[in-house]
Amino acid sequence: MVNMIILAVVFVIGAFIFQVTLSGFSRKVVARIQKRRGPTVFQNFYDIGKLLFKESSISHGFIFDFGIWMALGSTIATLLFMPVGGWALMPKYANIIVIIYLLAVGSLGMAMSAVGSGNPLASIGVSRALTQMFAYELPFVVIAVLIIYLAKSSNILKIIEYQTQNGWNLFSMPIGALVAYISLMGMLGKKPFDTPIAPAEIASGPLVEYSGKYLGFLMIQHEFATFIEVGLFVHLFMGSTSIIGFLIKYIIVYISAVMISSVMARLKIDEVVKFYWRWPLGLAILQAIITLGVRF
């Protein structure tokens, strides 16, 4: 039990340091693309630290606070279910459906807190975020279900095992991987799917009222959520049991997403829905047909 707790703490802190450093590095990458020098790699640590220890922050009532606890708390909880490479804190319960839905608690908490601030811009942002979630989840689910069906388990470790025996899903279902990658961009809120926080339209939407430690918490929540989402993609399509291998693949997936995002413009929210339901969803169904056709 004590072992478990120590492991859990090490895991959470490790994931935090890894992802925050990586996102600092990604800022460097984006800066280079934009012909800038960019901030230091550790900038995000400074930002989070500065925000957390700021002496003044504004609260808009109990729901505003409560949503933040719910958001970060459930994201950390989700992280504990998440395997890394072949290792997991609770190997029996590394269930993909649980992870996807627990992550939704975080989104719900954040949405609640944002709307609880009473700012209509936040409310508009949340309505967009939910719409976008509706858009990208569907193609992703089709592919995820396909993989679960092939691996005969919704346990991520079993899915990784299946891939070590049969080769990466990335190669056996390239279209599906593409679809999932596009969905991942939507999950991460990378352009062109950053409509919920569009600064020029709704002044950063849900984030509009946050300051100080609230914003710091949300930044941490965002980093953890990113870790889970990108990790999920790596596990589903490039599964292998080595932890180092996982991290390398993770970096490749994440940095490529950041690079693509830096030369993209933002779509309108209804175009996001139309896009996801036209192309990725169509391709996902195509992939399902192909895969099933090959197997039977």
Partner: peptide, 26 residues
């Protein structure tokens, strides 16, 4: 187990929240 883990995360964050500087209510 899911509920317990969720509860742990929630309580941890809540404690952390109250340890940090107090916020101003508007």
């Amino acid at each position: 187990l899911v509920a317990i883990i969720f509860g742990i995360g929630f309580i941890f964050v809540t404690i952390l929240f109250f340890l940090l500087a107090k916020s101003t209510k508007v």
